[in-house]
Nucleic acid binder design. Structure first.
Lengths: 113, 113
DNA sequence: ACATCATTTTAGTTATAACTAAACTAATGC
DNA sequence: GCATTAGTTTAGTTATAACTAAAATGATGT
């Protein structure tokens, strides 16, 4: 697949992938499940995942439904699933996200436009 | 392993990994084989690879010898090797590196110190 | 057409990553 | 100790990535 590794390299996208691993969900569902990130950011991550072929998307009225393409993951599939089986997964994820979230946090000021 | 995906996510580090896949090499060898990047940058990549457990390093006089730890790659091993079997690999790599190299290219000016 | 809801896209900010040049460290040989 | 060679680390630059807020798109319902 296209840029599989890049797409998988961030904890946020792996979290999203996990959310839609078994059951498909709408973009809004995913956004609500994540909780600490804007809708826009989620949509951008979904685009990256879709472009890399890791998720499939379809329209349903005014919703977009996302679903993981488990088959497209090849050897990574086992790796991902095993990481999720880990009882400590949630904890690890929290920590990793906390780290990553030293990213753009407090907003400074708005711009004209 | 620690941050396997992050370490593997860049073409440069995958290229390095490939160079030391079958036979170990010194840092200098790797640097010369790459050709278009400074020694410092190579050393930094080697550090990332070592920290993530993907390569093993040992001292030999004033040399440092690096060797891929194929076993540490788990499911990624097959993926990497298959990507290298591809006859188009070198070409793909070039293109990907060209892309990545829209990164820090022309130097601007030096700093005091 | 207009309002509303769901989502995507855009513009801008901050942190991070890949890099260069130069300083530093370490082993070897004189 | 000093010079040389090999490699690492540091400081600074540029590009990229993850994010926010707001604008834009698109489907549905009136």
């Amino acid at each position: 697949m296209r840029a599989t590794l890049r797409a998988l390299a961030t904890p946020r996208r792996r979290e999203i992938l996990r959310l839609i691993w078994r059951d498909e969900r709408t973009a809004g569902d995913i956004h609500r499940a994540l909780g600490d990130v804007t809708f826009g950011a989620v949509s951008q991550h979904l685009k990256v995942l879709a472009d890399s072929g890791l998720v499939r998307r379809r329209r349903d009225g005014r919703h977009r439904i996302y679903e993981a393409r488990q088959d497209s993951l090849g050897p990574f599939r086992a790796w991902l699933e095993s990481s999720w089986d880990d009882a400590l997964y949630r904890l690890k994820l929290r920590a990793e996200l906390e780290d990553a979230r030293r990213g753009p946090r407090p907003r400074s000021r708005r711009r004209r436009r």
